[in-house]
Design a protein around this nucleic acid. Structure first.
Length: 568
RNA sequence: GCACCUGUAGCUCAGUAGGAUAGAGCAGUGCCCUCCUAAGGCAUGUGCCGGGGGUUCGAUUCCUCUCAGGUGCACCA
């Protein structure tokens, strides 16, 4: 980064009308190595000097004398190309990384600021399936990234634990809840509760009165009927226990499980406030907030039967969170189909006069589908998240048994690598892309994959063990100016930018792409340059580089939510 | 009908706040373990960057129209 600033400074010296900021925006990274490390195109100056950009570039390049940080500065066509002094560069980057250790890549931009990340949020009594993988893994990574940058982070699992569906479940249980069913639910909660739910929905067709009964029980639940509450609590607990199995596998923890039910008593106040602020309109018995003038569709905030809706609850939740946590950002990791909902919700909060509406962000992502169509719980088109993780672990175990039979902790490593592969895959592309779930892709471990990065990391660990020297930054840096080492170090320099990019755009894939490319560069270096060698100076220098790569890969994987096995 | 998202190599995708010959992985082919972990490295081919117009010295990138796929549009969440 500092070298880039240096380039900008040099440029402002020869072009004194240029501000440092302007100069910085002009700087580019040349497409090819032999064009230098930084470049400034001169098209912009053509008008001013009435000369061709190529002539300007060569004139500018000549104005620079010898400069310590740069090996040479020369023009190539309309560009001025800067070649950094390799030794200088290498030394600066590695010393910095060595000094900052596991904080290399972090900055303190989040100090004193609280950020809420709401993610995962499965529905109680419904399967935790492949459709939940995205919010869960993306959300966890965003939390880790913000946490690393010094923010005070709060993770919230906004459980879907409220609504008429629970009236149905309670009613169904009261009808068919034999001791055998109780036992089955304890053993296999989600599947059995889902069965009850599906059966109830089916029987509504022949027994229309069931619909009324479900509503009755939901009302009872709301008004504090003891039995209803006891059943609801039980459903919630057994479901959560099952979800926690997956969270444990993924190593995910939440600070709060305040779900929909948590806000159920906070709705009247929201309605009152909307009323006071003259935002409500009656429409066919329902209460709405008109939003058409803002290019949105009107939002229903209260049904004609008086009960509230999703948006109303989210407004209550946002207000509660502002009051409780005084957030700097309130992040919702929820699928793209809910874009309109979040736009309406944000607009309403804004209309209520809360400036912090702009601090609420919807981090959306594309939809997962299956090869045989859209996911559908009812139609049995589900892939359970737990099955995906377990299959990935199994496959990893097979590979380990094939190739490394004397590895210790095989089970642990298989778990770390298998799950790492799934996480990595999920965070490899731009969030917004839709994708089709495929076992082949999920279970492929070659090329740009999680195992590839973990393998490279394990390789660095192995080298550090075999090196048997104390790593310090007092080495002969000229050893690291060859092409392969230099490329690795240039890559290392980019870590900070990758983390910041991921932060700014709420896009973990900046980090995913980054660590894969770092691993690639390191593997090239590894194949070209023997590291653990007789010559102690060469060994020390190359091991310092190895150690730095080791640190960055480890931190990068951690930010994605992956484990980092030291042998595999 | 209206709105939003996506469209780049056979497949899956990158493409850095418009710039120098558009890049990776997979799949295919051929090399490299007497050498630090071969889940690795090297070599090799592939592109009307969906299409038309426009802005610009310069467009995969910005604007506009258009085609294709996906998603959302009031009492589900």
């Amino acid at each position: 980064m500092d070298f880039k600033i240096k380039v900008a400074e040099l440029f402002t010296q020869v072009e004194n009308e240029l501000s440092l900021e302007e100069a910085l925006t002009l700087i580019e990274i040349p497409p090819s190595q032999d064009m230098g490390d930084y470049a400034v195109p001169c098209f912009k100056f053509a008008k001013k000097y009435r000369k061709s950009p190529a002539v300007i570039a060569s004139e500018i390049a000549e104005k620079f004398g010898t400069i310590e940080e740069f090996e040479r500065i020369e023009s190539a066509g309309p560009y001025v190309n800067f070649f950094v002094d390799k030794k200088h560069f290498v030394e600066k980057i590695l010393k910095e990384a060595f000094k900052e250790k596991e904080n290399y890549g972090s900055t303190n931009i989040g100090k004193g600021k609280s950020v809420i990340v709401e993610f995962s949020s499965p529905n109680i009594a419904k399967p935790f399936h492949i459709g939940h993988i995205r919010t869960t893994i993306i959300g966890n990574s965003i939390y880790k990234i913000f946490n690393y940058l010094g923010y005070n982070t709060i993770t919230i699992n906004h459980l879907g634990d409220y609504g008429t569906q629970f009236g149905m479940l309670i009613s169904a249980y009261k009808k068919w809840g034999t001791p055998e069913i109780v036992e089955a639910i304890e053993k296999n909660p989600i599947q059995e509760l889902l069965k009850l739910y599906v059966r109830y929905n089916k029987e509504i067709e022949t027994h229309p009165e069931y619909k009324e009964e479900a509503r009755y029980w939901f009302k009872e639940l709301e008004t504090g009927n003891e039995e209803a509450h006891r059943l609801w609590t039980w459903f919630r607990e057994v479901s959560l226990k099952e979800f926690n199995r997956v969270y444990d596998m993924l190593n995910i923890k939440f600070d709060s499980y305040a779900g929909e039910s948590f806000y159920s008593d906070k709705m009247p106040l929201v309605m009152e406030e909307l009323e006071d602020k003259c935002l409500l309109k009656d429409s066919e018995g329902a209460k709405i907030v008109e939003l058409q003038q803002y290019g949105l569709t009107d939002a229903v905030v209260q049904k004609s039967d008086g009960s509230t809706l999703y948006v109303t609850r989210d407004i209550a939740a946002a207000m509660y969170r502002k009051k409780t946590y005084n957030f700097y950002k309130n992040i919702y990791v929820v699928g793209a189909p809910q874009k309109l909902h979040f736009e309406q919700w944000r607009k309403i909060i804004e209309l209520m006069g809360y400036e912090w509406a702009e601090d609420c962000v919807h981090v959306m992502f594309g939809t997962v589908s299956l090869e045989d169509g859209v996911l559908s719980t009812r139609q049995g088109r589900v892939v359970f998240l737990e099955d995906v993780l377990n299959k990935a672990i199994e496959k990893t175990m097979d590979i380990i048994n094939e190739r490394n039979t004397n590895l210790e902790n095989k089970e642990l490593v298989a778990k770390q690598v298998g799950i790492g592969a799934v996480i990595f895959q999920e965070l490899f592309n731009n969030r917004i892309k839709d994708y089709m779930f495929s076992w082949d892709k999920t279970l492929s471990f070659e090329g740009e994959t999680g195992p590839y990065v973990q393998y490279t990391y394990a390789r660095t660990c192995s080298l550090l063990r075999k090196g048997e020297v104390e790593i310090d930054d007092n080495v002969d840096y000229s050893i690291l100016t060859d092409k392969e080492a230099f490329n690795v170090i240039k890559k290392i320099e980019g870590f900070k930018a990758a983390v910041l990019g991921a932060h700014d755009k709420y896009e973990p894939f900046f980090i995913t792409r980054y660590i894969v490319s770092l691993a690639q560069e390191f593997n090239r270096f590894y194949h070209e340059c023997p590291i653990v060698v007789e010559d102690i100076e060469v060994k020390k220098a190359r091991l310092l580089l190895t150690k730095t790569v080791n640190n960055v890969l480890k931190k990068g994987m951690e930010l994605l939510g992956m484990e980092t096995p030291e042998r595999m």
